[in-house]
Simulated assay, not measured.
Amino acid sequence: MNTRQMEIFVSIIRYGNFSNAAKKLYLSQPAVSANIDLLEKELESKLLIRQGRKATLTEKGKIFYDYCISVLGMTEKTVQLIKDSDEISGTLHIASSFVPGLYLLPKFMNEFKEVNPNLKFELNIKNSKTAYDGILSNKYDMGFVGSLSKNDCILQRKIFVDHMVLIAPNVPPYNEFPPEISLDDIKDLPFLMRTIGSSTLSIAEKELAKKGLDIASLNTVASFDSGEAVIQGVLKNLGVAIISSICVEDNPNILKFQIKDVAMKRDFYAIIPNNEYLSPKVTSFYEFLPDLS
């Protein structure tokens, strides 16, 4: 068993199957399969289940996967220490919800790469729940989400504060609305919603409920698992939506409204596993980010 085999094993899970892992690692698929066969023979255990094109972990595979993450992280730290080098390299695997992934992370990534040119980023846009699950399962190195976790297995740092607004297309009758509208005014509007698992949905649901309005009672005409799809729906005059203001701050074709007496402040967090064996690239980028906690 060696760290290259561990890297291959981890890549199969991160990229979903043998074929994708082979492409990412510049190996042939038979070479990837041969390394997994060697691992399973050495450990005398089945580690992966092939389900069509997808590979999933067995129970023993889950144990070995977490072990591989720790060993690979410790190996990176050891190499950096022995070389007495601050150089950060490799690939940082990130899962981010829609807002930080599209509107915050590119700036942070660019600034970090200016001093760490050998680091690569792989960004996957997911909803907040999927990002949390990916951190807990070690599928991703780091996550960016719009909600706070109470799980002790996760470290989190507040990196940005925003507020949510009601948005509508810049067409009649919306362009005749005042800047602040009441709860009664929105009850009959056609709404575009995010799907379950979205922090945008959960925050809107929570804040409206405080004022006695059940979000399920609104006139929902469509639900989307992407914030960008919601914005495009608004632009096409399909309906209105509640979304983070940073998403539409420079768009003249979209109107923004405050909902009277409803405060929808929204915090965004960077999250990493609470693990002493994190690789230098994870801890360095995490510490580089703003800390508004």
Rank of each mutant, 00 (worst) to 15 (best):
Ile243Val: 07
Gly143Thr: 01
Glu87Val: 06
Leu192Ala: 12
Glu180Leu: 11
Ile36Met: 04
Gly73Tyr: 05
Arg266Gly: 04
Lys60Thr: 07
Glu114Met: 10
Asp86Thr: 03
Val99Cys: 12
Pro106Ile: 02
Lys256Pro: 04
Tyr103Asn: 09
Ser244Leu: 05
Ser45Asp: 12
Ile69Tyr: 14
Leu235Trp: 09
Ala209Ile: 06
Leu192Pro: 09
Lys158Gln: 06
Thr56Glu: 13
Lys23Gly: 15
Ala55Thr: 05
Lys41Val: 08
Asp84Arg: 13
Gln5Gly: 15
Ala34Arg: 11
Thr91Phe: 06
Lys206Tyr: 09
Asn20Ala: 15
Glu76Arg: 07
Pro169Met: 10
Gln29Trp: 06
Ile254His: 00
Val161Glu: 14
Phe191Leu: 12
Ser217Tyr: 14
Ile259Trp: 01
Ser11Val: 11
Asn219Asp: 10
Ala229Lys: 11
Glu111Trp: 04
Asn275Tyr: 11
Asp162Asn: 08
Val240Leu: 12
Ser33Ile: 13
Ser279Lys: 08
Asn2Arg: 09
Tyr269Ser: 02
Leu27Gln: 03
Leu289Glu: 11
Asn17Ser: 12
Lys187Pro: 12
Asn35Gln: 11
Pro179Asp: 01
Val262Tyr: 06
Ser149Ala: 10
Leu289Gln: 10
Leu119Pro: 03
Lys150Pro: 02
Lys158Val: 10
Ser33Lys: 06
Met109His: 06
Glu287Val: 09
Leu235Thr: 02
Thr220Ile: 15
Glu205His: 13
Gly61Arg: 03
Glu44Thr: 15
Asp66Arg: 08
Leu155Arg: 10
Thr75Phe: 10
Met1Lys: 08
Cys68Phe: 12
Asp86Ser: 06
Val171Gly: 08
Glu205Ser: 14
Val165Ala: 03
Asp162Lys: 00
Ser245His: 00
Leu81His: 03
Ala168Trp: 11
Phe121Met: 11
Leu39His: 01
Leu123Met: 13
Tyr174Ile: 04
Ser202Gly: 01
Gln51Phe: 13
Phe108Lys: 00
Glu7Phe: 10
Glu111Leu: 12
Ala31Ser: 09
Tyr26Lys: 11
Ala55Asn: 09
Val10Gln: 10
Asp152Phe: 15
Lys150Arg: 13
Gln232Tyr: 08
Tyr103Gly: 02
Thr3Gln: 07
Pro280Phe: 04
Cys68Ile: 06
Ser226Trp: 13
Thr283Gly: 11
Leu155Met: 14
Asp37Thr: 10
Tyr140Cys: 05
Gly16Thr: 07
Val99Met: 03
Phe160Asp: 00
Glu114Ile: 12
Pro290Lys: 09
Ile82Cys: 01
Leu81Arg: 07
Ser97Val: 07
Gly143Met: 03
Lys211Phe: 15
Glu122Tyr: 15
Tyr26Asn: 12
Lys256Gln: 11
Ser217Thr: 15
Lys83Asn: 13
Ser147Phe: 01
Pro169Ala: 05
Val32Cys: 13
Phe257Glu: 01
Glu180Tyr: 05
Ile215Glu: 11
Gly146Thr: 00
Ile135Glu: 06
Asn17Ala: 10
Asp152Ala: 12
Val165Ile: 14
Met164His: 00
Asp291Arg: 07
Glu40Gln: 07
Lys139Ser: 02
